[in-house]
């Protein structure tokens, strides 16, 4: 029962938001865009939270900046750019794909391919242990004797 309750609570819980009612834009469509943008921007004070989740003053300032720009008719890209211009790429929770970030984006896939390739080569290569030579005549005879003893 307790587990069920916990599961139900988890299923119906929503992400914590620090966005205060007074900050919200009157236009729900603009506010929704502001939320999408806010979820993608890092708060620089509590560095692994987005500005929407963070209660820091700076996060509130950036939320206000985002809403000001949206209300002024900026596109989402222009709003992101306005924040990046001030704080650098580090504010983006999703790093842009660029030459400097190729290693970050494609490195893991590269490692996986390398690993699969390595495993393939490793498994396909001929066994390092040479096959055992056939038994000599004496050994054959001894084996036959042993088998006979065993049956007896």
């Amino acid at each position: 029962m307790r587990i069920l309750l916990a599961a139900a609570l988890l299923a119906f819980s929503v992400a914590a938001h620090a966005v205060e009612p007074a900050e919200r834009l009157p236009d729900p469509a603009l506010e929704a865009r502001a939320r999408t943008i806010g979820a993608g921007l890092r708060c620089l004070v509590c560095q692994n939270e987005s500005i929407d989740e963070s209660g820091a003053e700076l996060a509130r300032d950036i939320r206000a900046l985002v809403r000001r720009r949206l209300a002024a008719g900026d596109t989402d890209e222009a709003v992101f750019q306005a924040v990046v211009d001030r704080y650098g790429d580090f504010v983006l929770l999703r790093p842009p794909v660029r030459r400097e970030t190729w290693l970050l984006w494609y490195g893991p896939i590269g490692l996986l391919v390398l690993g699969i390739g390595g495993a393939f080569v490793w498994l396909r290569r001929p066994s390092a242990v040479p096959p055992a030579p056939d038994l000599t005549a004496e050994e054959q005879q001894r084996l036959a004797e042993l088998m006979k003893e065993d049956q007896a």
Binding site: L44, V45, D61, I62, R86, Y87, G88
Partner: peptide, 12 residues
């Protein structure tokens, strides 16, 4: 209001 700070990229 900290707006000039925001424009400079001040975070603390």
């Amino acid at each position: 209001a900290g707006t000039v700070g925001l424009d400079f990229g001040v975070y603390g």
